[in-house]
Amino acid sequence: MKDTIKERLKFLELCLLLLGEFRKNYLHLFFGIKRAQQTKDIKAYEEECIGNIRYCDKLKRFLPTDVFEPKLLPTESHELLAYQKHVEDLIASKGEESPFHQIEYISQPFLTAPNIKLWGQLNRAITGKLVLSIKYSGLRKKEASYNIQPLALIHNGFRWHVRAYVVGEERYRDFVLSRMNKYQISELEYCSAGLLENDEKWNNTVELVFKPHPQLTPKQVQSVEEDYGMIDGSKTVECKVCNIQHLLKLTRTGLDDEQREAHLFPLILDYKNSPKLIDILNKLKSKKLI
């Protein structure tokens, strides 16, 4: 089966899953294909995913059967959500109205999206191994100049930043995209030592063990355990060393020797048995990153 047909069948299955129905004109809405091809695609889905779809004469549309089970869609929830958003964005780009319920994304309620020109420049610098000269304003420091080798773009749940090697300082650090005021390609030679594979904090990971705040009531503890999918009262997450401070802020996690209000910060980090993690956290605290 051609990839183009597989993509259309995956979209058909998404409609069955999210809408509980499928109409032929949905294929035209998303792919712009003719009626004859629409009929062939539905036939192909019936043959590929036997027992998943039936036609309802009364409603004049296709419905999922009682034993319907997705076979073409991503099995991981985050991948499925990403695919749904991809479909909705494509439909919107065609000026059409999506048949799906519109999900409200509030991960960035007031922070700006990346500047398109900057976004393009950073991507070109990463793939082309270029050095950029930037002007950067931090919260604790006035505008400063840096020569950086952009290595990776990351979204920390609130805003975008770029992991980069700072030329001349021989160190790696994160730069928030919205604080990069000026940027241009530098004539400096790309430093072969400043590659992502040499960034220890990027390549090394640690296990973070999250637990419910000890001051929560038993019912609140149960709710937190269910919210975060905890097993035996804890949740273990593998995290890049350079992303620890971002994950702690994103999850509203307090250190267990610095208890915060339980209803505002329902998680604590259990780290007392990890000398490596203790050292990392002490360094982050000294830099006021946590």
Rank of each mutant, 00 (worst) to 15 (best):
C242W: 00
Q102A: 08
E69H: 14
E169S: 06
Y190G: 02
R61E: 12
L196S: 12
T205H: 14
L81W: 05
D257T: 08
S145N: 12
S186D: 04
L9R: 07
E207G: 12
R124T: 03
Q149K: 00
H101D: 04
E170M: 13
S274L: 07
E69T: 09
R54L: 10
W119T: 01
D256L: 09
Q102D: 06
E69N: 13
V162D: 06
M180P: 01
E189Q: 09
V206K: 14
M180A: 01
S234H: 12
Q38N: 03
R140E: 06
S223K: 10
P109W: 05
C242A: 14
Y105G: 00
K6A: 09
K219Q: 09
S274G: 05
L80K: 01
K71G: 11
E46T: 12
Y165G: 05
N198R: 08
K283Q: 15
L14N: 01
D232N: 15
Y271P: 02
L250Y: 11
I185T: 14
G120Y: 03
N115I: 05
Q222G: 02
Y228Q: 07
L139H: 11
K182Y: 15
A92I: 10
A92D: 13
T236H: 15
I154C: 07
L248F: 04
T4L: 12
S107T: 15
K58F: 15
L284V: 15
A113S: 08
V176S: 06
Y228H: 13
K285T: 07
H246L: 02
R179Y: 03
A164I: 07
P74Y: 01
P99T: 11
E76P: 01
Q149H: 04
K142D: 09
L247T: 03
I103P: 01
H161M: 02
V162A: 09
Y271N: 05
H86C: 12
D256S: 10
T65D: 02
S286A: 11
I53T: 02
L132D: 08
R23Y: 01
D89L: 14
S137V: 12
A144W: 00
K58T: 15
Y165H: 11
L17R: 01
N282M: 10
I33N: 13
F265I: 04
P214H: 08
E47P: 06
G157M: 03
C49L: 11
G32T: 03
N25T: 09
C56A: 09
K249N: 10
E169W: 03
K43A: 15
V131C: 13
V209L: 10
N203M: 10
P114M: 03
T4K: 13
G229P: 07
Q121M: 12
H86Y: 14
L130Y: 11
W202T: 02
I116W: 06
K2H: 13
P150D: 10
K201V: 03
L208A: 07
P109M: 09
Y271V: 07
P114S: 05
I244L: 08
E197M: 10
K182S: 07
P212K: 02
E226F: 01
E46L: 05
D279H: 06
A125L: 08
G51L: 04
G20K: 14
Y83T: 01
L9V: 04
G138R: 06
V167E: 00
T127N: 09
E104C: 11
K2M: 14
L277N: 05
Y183N: 05
G233N: 04
N147K: 09
L122F: 07
T75I: 13
D227C: 04
Q245C: 11
A262I: 00
D199H: 08
Q215E: 04
C191S: 12
D227F: 10
G95L: 08
Y271Q: 06
